[in-house]
Design a binder for these strands. Structure first.
Length: 802
RNA sequence: GCGGAUGUGGCGGAAUUGGCAGACGCGCCAGACUUAGGAUCUGGUGGGCGACCGUGGGGGUUCGAGUCCCUUCAUCCGCACCA
């Protein structure tokens, strides 16, 4: 009868031990390794097994690095500003500060169940004034650097959250948070000039060891394009219209022009007879929600009555207005080449505008174009450019246009400045005072933090004003510059503000003089490994990179990328869906911790599937890893006191064990690491059956290898082996390449590529030996003439017959 | 529409550079021990009676393809009138 493995007692014992004897200590000599989790928003519903996954991955990686001799920075904190706490306050009348504190307490307790090596001395909380003091400080620095500015413009507005949103927060025309279709609202907003960093944000992606997918998403979001601006004269006027195009090679084919409805020149270009139609169209266009605007691919438009002159053909072309042209990209006006642009083609077809081909596949015009030809080709109908290759023309024409004085080479970005104001309560107050004489004046740095005052009512006003606007004693203040009565800015910052830099603060979280000291920043930053979900690919991860670059520019840190390596773990799904309360498919870790223990749950979190992919949770699956731990426990307990001389077989097994676990771990193939443990455990059990025991070195090596994954049981077994120090005081085992080799190996024997058996041959067998041995195995199975004999050393013998 | 990922037993998933497909685990079947078994242990488990057939489908390259090439389908994700 095997000894039952008592996970409850063992885990209790070692959790207490670690509290009293931390295993991750900074002796000042070890190199640092900063392994960071994306810090959670402490919601009221607590953690489920999906949350555990990323935290287990990062803890396994941290402990592995610990065993490799690093001092691990593995902190945890709270991204605690945000709407749920505020909505809860509105509903229940509980101050967000109170509910947030409660949620943090719950979360912390649940997180501690993972038994990760978090350093809770480093804990940060974005809603702590000592923390948001520095969030505000960064804003002030940005303001002083001209990177924070105010602008009145139509912004994305969520009618349900009653607040403005950044572009990044609008997903398919809907609010990222609540799914309500986003509308436009004209508001005076604080903006951050992230576009100033567009090129650096794009270029520096090359430096990063990040998933290609995320790099691609950021590249696309920044959306750099190369093209030209061209001036078109307005017929019968001295005005010109500037357009942006990425296809200057098609300029001869421009047969009309379209302006965005919001374009500044619309009214002056509109002829009296078209006035009514134009105004009606613009009215309609502005009413459209972004969802409608995205879904309606059917082209609409209205003619202004005016004409522009194509600068090359000198022919007049009509100027139209249409909402398929975006006001805030390029110049808000385009030249239209229906023959070579799908959208222009649709528009021209609908409104009967001439289509002139200027790029051809083979130098010849197509009799009737059924769709736009958007490929490169040979230029036709293009005056002196005829016969040129369009790709070459694309590069050369902008310079020609510049010489002609009608255009120039330009680049454009899809990235927009960051709308930074939120009309909500539970966020960092923007530290600005509005003075009639001095304009917006930052709160002096020494007066930070500017505390978020308590309010009676948290409800967003819905008018575009923050609930803070009602607290007169707070709003009314004096100008820090001239001392006259002035009013405070009442908008708050978006939730991203704190998360854009929190990772810098962990390593110096009690510093009241600086955001982070130079010394600590140099010693402990940046983050070596960042682990979290992919959902922040263009939000948090882009903002953090922007903040870091700015902080480098003002000398706070000396690196310009915050996260050297990024790993996105997949979701845990149940019944094919992401775990959520509303779907009722949430699996709580609490019962599993009770019934199977933390070690089992940690292993199973890894065993469910490849860490980078979504994995289906199977409640029964955890039995497998639990049984494995039991068997391993009993293997060690039954054999620890035997004195067994290691056989060659045992030594080889040990080296292979180390090799397999290490390479799989290095490749982040954590699911196969767990299966590897099971495999080798089975092999060790077989060996014991055969040899009556197993050597001590192999058992101890196995325990050390398992330690990052199942730390409690490993500590226990390490102690059972007779040690009185932690298993984490060891260094990660190494292996000898030579020991991985065998002198005799089994290879497959095939006829015509189909396996017909196996044969044992010496590893260094000659082709002749191998093939002769193989033929013995095949005996009479070969029929026909042998036309070829193939031997791939170490792999296979293949006899080709006819 | 564009871009990306994925597709392998009843299920989750393994498989350096092309080289014994299905490791490991769940489940299932049989047996052992038991008053009992939803515990534990042992054995078995892709399909087909079979020669053989099998990695979403169809082609191709190769002595040999889950892996490479072409094509096609399905699911998921990202972007979506960016000129």
């Amino acid at each position: 009868m095997p000894t039952p493995y008592n996970h409850k007692e063992i885990e209790k014992k070692w959790r207490k031990y670690w509290q009293e004897n931390p295993v991750n200590v900074n002796d000042g000599k070890k190199p640092k390794y900063y392994c960071l989790d994306m810090f959670p928003y402490p919601s009221g519903s607590g953690l489920h097994v999906g949350h555990w996954r990323g935290y287990v991955i990062s803890d396994v990686w941290s402990r592995y690095k610990l065993l490799n001799g690093y001092y691990i920075i593995h902190p945890m904190g709270w991204d605690a500003f945000g709407l749920p706490a505020e909505n809860y306050a509105i509903k229940m009348g509980v101050h967000p500060r109170v509910s947030t504190a409660e949620n943090i307490a719950t979360f912390k307790k649940q997180l501690e169940d993972i038994s990760a090596i978090y350093d809770w001395d480093m804990e940060v909380n974005t809603t702590d004034p000592e923390f948001y003091k520095w969030t505000q400080w960064i804003f002030v620095k940005m303001f002083k650097a001209g990177l924070a500015y105010q602008k009145e413009m139509p912004i994305n507005w969520c009618p349900s959250c009653k607040t403005g949103l950044a572009n990044e927060e609008v997903v398919n025309g809907e609010c990222e948070r609540c799914g309500t279709p986003v509308t436009k609202k004209n508001l005076k907003q604080w903006m951050l000039r992230i576009t100033k960093y567009a090129d650096r944000l794009l270029e520096d992606l090359n430096k990063l060891d990040w998933p290609e997918k995320v790099k691609k998403m950021q590249t696309d979001w920044i959306g750099k394009s190369y093209g030209a601006e061209v001036d078109f004269e307005v017929q019968g006027s001295d005005k010109t219209i500037k357009i942006y195009t990425t296809r200057p090679d098609t300029l001869y084919g421009a047969t009309f022009m379209v302006l965005a409805p919001e374009h500044a020149m619309v009214s002056e270009l509109t002829k009296p007879e078209q006035k009514e139609a134009v105004e009606e169209y613009i009215q309609k266009a502005l009413m459209k929600s972004s969802v409608d605007r995205m879904q309606d691919k059917e082209k609409t438009g209205v003619f202004t009555g005016s004409y522009a002159i194509n600068p090359l053909t000198k022919k007049p072309i009509p100027i139209w207005i249409s909402d398929y042209v975006l006001a805030d990209y390029g110049t808000g006006a385009i030249m239209c080449v229906p023959a070579h642009d799908e959208r222009d083609f649709d528009f021209a077809k609908k409104f009967g505008i001439p289509i002139i081909q200027v790029i051809s596949k083979d130098g010849k015009e197509v009799p009737e174009l059924n769709e736009a030809y958007t490929e490169p080709g040979i230029m036709i109908n293009s005056g002196e450019w005829n016969g040129m290759d369009s790709e070459t023309a694309k590069k050369e024409i902008p310079d020609l246009l510049e010489k002609m004085g009608i255009g120039k080479k330009t680049v454009n970005y899809k990235l927009r400045d960051w709308v930074f104001s939120r009309q909500r309560y539970w966020g960092e107050p923007i530290p600005i005072v509005h003075c009639e004489d001095c304009g917006p004046v930052p709160v002096p740095e020494e007066e930070l933090p500017l505390l978020l005052p308590d309010v009676e009512k948290y409800e967003p006003t819905g008018t575009g004003e923050s609930p803070l606007a009602n607290i007169h004693e707070w709003v009314n203040t004096t100008c820090p510059q001239c001392g006259k009565p002035a009013k405070r800015e009442t908008n708050t910052m978006p939730q991203w503000a704190g998360s854009s830099w929190y990772f810098l603060r962990y390593v110096d979280n009690k510093n009241d003089k600086e955001l982070v000291s130079k010394e600590k920043a140099q010693k402990y930053l940046p983050v070596d490994m960042y682990i979290g979900g992919v959902e922040h690919a263009v939000l948090h991860l882009l903002y953090s990179r922007f903040y870091t670059k700015f902080l480098k520019d003002i000398g706070v840190v000396d690196f310009d990328e915050p996260f050297i390596r990024l790993f996105n773990q997949g979701m845990i799904v149940k019944n094919g869906a992401k775990m959520s309360k509303s779907k009722g498919n949430v699996v709580s870790p609490d019962d599993l911790v009770r019934d199977y223990g933390r070690d089992s749950l940690r292993l199973y979190e890894l065993f469910v599937g490849p860490p980078e992919l979504d994995s289906e949770w199977d409640d029964r699956g955890i039995d497998g890893v639990y049984r494995f731990l039991n068997r391993f426990y009993n293997l060690v307990m039954d054999n620890k006191d035997k004195t067994v001389e290691p056989t060659q077989e045992m030594i080889k097994l040990r080296h292979r064990f180390v090799h397999d676990i290490t390479t799989r771990l290095e490749n982040f193939s954590l699911n196969t690491v767990v299966s590897g443990f099971m495999e080798y455990n089975n092999k060790m059990i077989d060996l014991v059956k055969k040899a009556g025991g197993i050597d001590r070195d192999t058992l101890e090596t196995a325990i050390i290898l398992l330690a990052p994954f199942a730390p409690h049981i490993s500590e226990e077994l390490w102690a059972q082996m007779g040690h009185d120090t932690s298993v984490f005081k060891n260094t990660w085992p190494t292996y000898d390449e030579e020991m991985l080799k065998d002198s005799e190996i089994e290879i497959a024997v095939q006829i015509n590529g189909k396996t017909r058996g196996t044969v044992m041959i010496p590893a260094d067998a000659s082709k002749e030996t191998a093939i002769n041995k193989a033929k013995e195995v095949l005996a009479g199975k070969i029929s026909g003439t042998i036309i070829k004999e193939i031997y791939v050393p170490g792999k296979i013998v293949n006899i080709v017959v006819k």
